[in-house]
Amino acid sequence: MKDYRIASIPGDGIGKEVISAGVEVLHALAEREGTFRLSFEAFDWGSDYYKRHGIMMPEDGLETLKPFDAIYFGAVGAPDVPDHITLWGLRLAICQPFDQYANVRPTRILPGIEGPLRNVGSKDLDWVIVRENSEGEYAGQGGRSHRGLPEEVATEVTIFTRAGVTRIMRFAFELARSRPRKLLTVVTKSNAQRHGMVMWDEIAAEVAADYPDVTWDKMLVDAMTMRMTLKPWTLDTIVATNLQADILSDLAAALAGSLGIAPTANLNPERRFPSMFEPIHGSAFDITGKGIANPIGTFWSATMMLEHLGEKAAADRLMRAIERVTADQGLHTPDLGGAATTRQVTDAVIAAILADNE
């Protein structure tokens, strides 16, 4: 029997609630499968830790995480701590050193959920957005000079490297090749960003030559927002820069019904470091403690974690359970227009796992 060690980092706000639900569901799933075990170790890193220690995680945090098979992450951010401290102090402090350069965000309309687009269903909106997760607009390069003076200057330097762009393009083309439609859209803004994004386009064309079986096209990011809303059926796999994909994936989640259902995988495809799996939503302090956070995005992220670990059958069983629960509108949380609680959705998913005989 295989044993997997999972580092659990609930983080802030509703992250603590949904990760707790996710761990409970994963334990039930592992018991149902009977072919592997999951061992979770929880870490209390986040904004509360920062308020006690002045840092978001211990200085040896990365060394602590290295031996784990995967990281299950909740959310980060608090109203009384600046966002750049929380993000760079925890989530990005893990993603970048662990070279989790491929951020993968599947989006589709799940059974029982009605998106805001008229007459658009799961056959019309079934995407995977690949986000370059290590450089680009979030490279962290830049600075500020003459602080507080009228001539104060702040720079935020976007960095594209040939190595970084090539590897994310190859990842995206491989993913597109693995999907039935074999269709990839490369998002760009090379009409206005004439250096880095022109190189992005050039490398996309170079990589495309190695994938003659994949149909691909190029779309300016502003036009992409219109295409996503007006012609969603023309899209399948999408690759975009760190900032652009960050924005587009939130739009995608909203078009699929709610940020609460959207999953994320931060992958180190070469597996030199553990990969991290998290729901797309934030810490949502406005509903923290009310017991109404939607755990579906966290459960869906768990399916991606199981696939990454090689437990495809378990991932499929969990996804079937998720879809059976979302199909019941009486089990929709408030973000989906219902009145169900986190507890009710969690119990229903566990029940569906146990009842699944496929």
Results as ranks from 00 to 15, higher is better:
L62D: 03
L62H: 00
E63S: 14
T64G: 01
L65T: 00
K66T: 14
F68K: 05
D69G: 10
D69Y: 13
A70E: 03
A70N: 00
I71T: 05
Y72H: 12
Y72S: 02
F73V: 05
F73D: 04
G74H: 02
V76F: 00
V76N: 00
V76C: 09
A78S: 15
A78D: 08
A78L: 08
P79S: 12
P79W: 13
D80T: 13
D80L: 07
D80Q: 08
V81W: 07
P82C: 01
P82H: 06
P82Q: 06
D83R: 05
H84M: 07
H84R: 09
L87I: 12
W88M: 11
G89W: 01
G89P: 05
L90T: 00
R91D: 01
L92K: 11
A93V: 00
I94H: 04
I94W: 01
C95W: 06
C95P: 00
P97C: 00
P97A: 08
P97F: 05
D99M: 09
Y101S: 12
N103D: 10
V104S: 12
V104G: 01
P106M: 11
T107D: 01
R108I: 11
I109T: 04
L110W: 09
P111W: 13
P111V: 06
G112M: 01
G112V: 01
I113S: 07
E114L: 13
G115K: 03
G115L: 05
G115D: 06
P116Y: 06
P116T: 14
L117V: 13
R118D: 15
R118S: 13
N119Y: 09
N119V: 01
V120M: 11
V120E: 10
V120C: 12
V120D: 13
G121E: 07
G121I: 02
S122T: 11
S122I: 04
K123R: 15
K123Q: 15
K123I: 04
D124C: 06
D124N: 12
D124V: 06
W127M: 10
I129M: 14
I129F: 15
R131N: 05
N133C: 04
N133G: 12
N133A: 05
S134M: 10
S134G: 12
S134R: 02
E135Y: 06
E137Q: 12
E137K: 08
A139W: 11
G140I: 01
G140F: 05
G140K: 06
R144H: 01
S145E: 14
S145Q: 13
H146W: 06
H146D: 15
H146R: 14
H146S: 13
R147D: 12
R147Y: 14
R147H: 10
L149C: 05
P150I: 02
E151K: 10
E152R: 11
A154W: 00
A154H: 06
T155E: 10
V157D: 15
T158C: 13
T158P: 03
F160A: 04
F160Q: 07
T161P: 04
T161C: 12
G164M: 05
V165I: 14
T166E: 14
R167E: 11
R167V: 00
M169H: 15
M169E: 04
R170M: 08
R170T: 14
R170W: 08
